[in-house]
Design a protein around this nucleic acid. Structure first.
Lengths: 110, 110
DNA sequence: CGAACAGTTAAGTAATCACTTGACTGTTAG
DNA sequence: CTAACAGTCAAGTGATTACTTAACTGTTCG
């Protein structure tokens, strides 16, 4: 569950057009057309990207009248951020231990 | 350049098998076989995943004798982390401004 | 030397992705 | 009422991905 959600979130962020949508949305909510206009593709194609962003939970949207308004969910952003951050910290902690070991007086090293 | 590097990094992290490799590597360097063994696939398939991790710079490796030793590059990990983190901060700053606006006395709101 | 080992290359295949154009639905505004 | 508009669905296509097995290269060790 959580794992496949990470799959989808990272996959969503792997595409520059979708990241452009995210960049736009962090400035505030936008309609489908507003998100699609700057992209080098047809509107239906842009909607597929939007769907990808929605399926991983990065973006939510609601339709009112004929306009669909989209906004990002910052919680999902930090989910991805946390995964990376935690792994980096493990690596750093490991380096610290290694450094301490190398600096220790020889008789402590065993 | 930087953009396509982000593409590749996020794409690399989108696959659970590759994330498992990263998980293993944050514990310390490992050989190709050690990385491949726990994965539900053949060795050549695992090597393709490894190549993906190398191409985005998340992993480096060097061969000595018949053994190739792989290690992660934490700088690349933080590259991905930063992109997400910066966008989340933009969004949060925006929410803060919005909150300040809503809390302001009416005559300041313009 | 010769067997076992670690890794690598190649060829082939099924599944998924990223679009396109064209037709259509429901909404709003003149 | 009807034209323009915002969004959506569908069918089709070419590119890319994720594997497989089989064959091969170079290394180590008894």
């Amino acid at each position: 569950m959580l794992n496949s959600s990470l799959d989808k979130t990272f996959a969503a962020l792997a595409d520059p057009n979708r990241r452009a949508m995210v960049e736009r949305l962090v400035q505030g909510p936008a309609t489908v057309s507003e998100l699609a206009r700057p992209l080098p593709m047809s509107l239906p194609a842009a909607m597929l990207h939007l769907r990808v962003l929605e399926e991983c939970g990065l973006v939510t949207s609601q339709k009112s009248g004929r306009v669909r308004t989209c906004r990002i969910d910052p919680a999902r952003l930090s989910l991805a951020e946390q995964w990376v951050s935690e792994r980096r910290k493990i690596w750093e902690a490991r380096l610290d231990r290694l450094g301490a070991f190398l600096n220790a007086p020889e008789e402590e090293r065993k």
